[in-house]
């Protein structure tokens, strides 16, 4: 009797969770399905599968809106920002986690405090600074802003992970007299690789999805990122929802792929701040 009612409850829980999962997924199905309908069919029958699978929206995106170029742009910006942010953050995180020096805690507190400053409060002077030195409408502005504003959170996450590195290994390389860069590349980097991957996933998806920074700094259509191009260029054809939806779908594919491949890293990274 007891197990029967328990089974019933578990079945009900399953149903509730399945309904929520359906609700979370349905808009994404809708986006995928609608992107393969001609506009007229989409307006007449917003529900249901397309009568014939229609790929002209994607072809239009590639030829009329130079999608390949947009993807290439975004990949280059995100890649350069990743390299820059890691090159700046890893040495700092290692110093905070394992080196002993004067004012270390003071600097660390300043770094963490910087994390709480909302990005929008310094965007105006940065924009004017960039236009003064002629960096607006150039990839360097976006790469600089992305990688520099990611430093505090990247350092925070890496520092809390690097603190867990065993001191014995580090002592051993010190006694060996290993030079700093040797220690960095042969021991510290390999040992902190999982943390580096985690933080890079978060940064890369954030940048891929970012609207504000590339929207403000890049004006030419040829320099835009995928996300900004969808939000601005495609939105000019706002009555053509299937075209917009196919753009949204393609803009979502890279983050979805990253999520499917690196799920476990994301799950771990997300709770670091929560459990502390």
């Amino acid at each position: 009797m007891k197990t029967a009612s328990r089974r019933m409850i578990r079945f009900l829980i399953f149903i509730v969770l399945a309904v929520i999962a359906f609700m979370a997924m349905y808009p994404l199905f809708y986006m995928a399905i609608s992107s393969m309908k001609p506009t007229i069919e989409y307006i007449k029958h917003p529900m249901g599968l397309p009568k014939t699978w229609y790929f002209d929206n994607f072809i239009a995106l590639i030829y009329r809106f130079s999608l390949v170029r947009l993807f290439g742009n975004t990949l280059v910006y995100v890649g350069l920002s990743l390299v820059a942010s890691l090159a700046l953050s890893i040495p700092a995180a290692y110093a905070f986690a394992k080196l002993k020096f004067k004012y270390r805690n003071g600097f660390y507190i300043i770094m963490i405090a910087t994390m709480t400053i909302p990005g929008i409060t310094f965007i105006i002077p940065n924009y004017l600074l960039m236009s003064k030195i002629g960096w607006t409408d150039h990839i360097i502005s976006v790469v600089t802003i992305w990688s520099v504003s990611a430093i505090p959170s990247t350092v925070f996450l890496l520092t809390s992970l690097m603190r867990a590195m065993p001191d014995e290994v580090l002592e051993a390389i010190k006694i060996d007299g290993a030079k700093y860069h040797q220690a960095m590349f042969k021991v510290i980097l390999p040992m902190s690789l999982p943390g580096v991957v985690t933080v890079s996933i978060f940064n890369a998806t954030n940048w891929w999805n970012d609207l504000l920074t590339p929207l403000i700094y890049l004006q030419s259509d040829g320099l835009k990122t995928v996300t900004v191009a969808v939000a601005t260029v495609l939105n000019r054809f706002s009555s053509d929802y299937p075209l917009l939806l196919s753009g949204l779908l393609l803009a979502s594919l890279p983050p979805i792929a990253i999520y499917i491949i690196f799920q476990s890293y994301i799950r771990k990274g997300l709770v670091i701040g929560a459990v502390k």
Binding site: L211, T227, A251, P255
Partner: peptide, 11 residues
């Protein structure tokens, strides 16, 4: 449940 969180606010 986490899938929508990985997408851009724009999407």
């Amino acid at each position: 449940y986490y899938l929508p969180a990985i997408l851009s606010s724009v999407v």
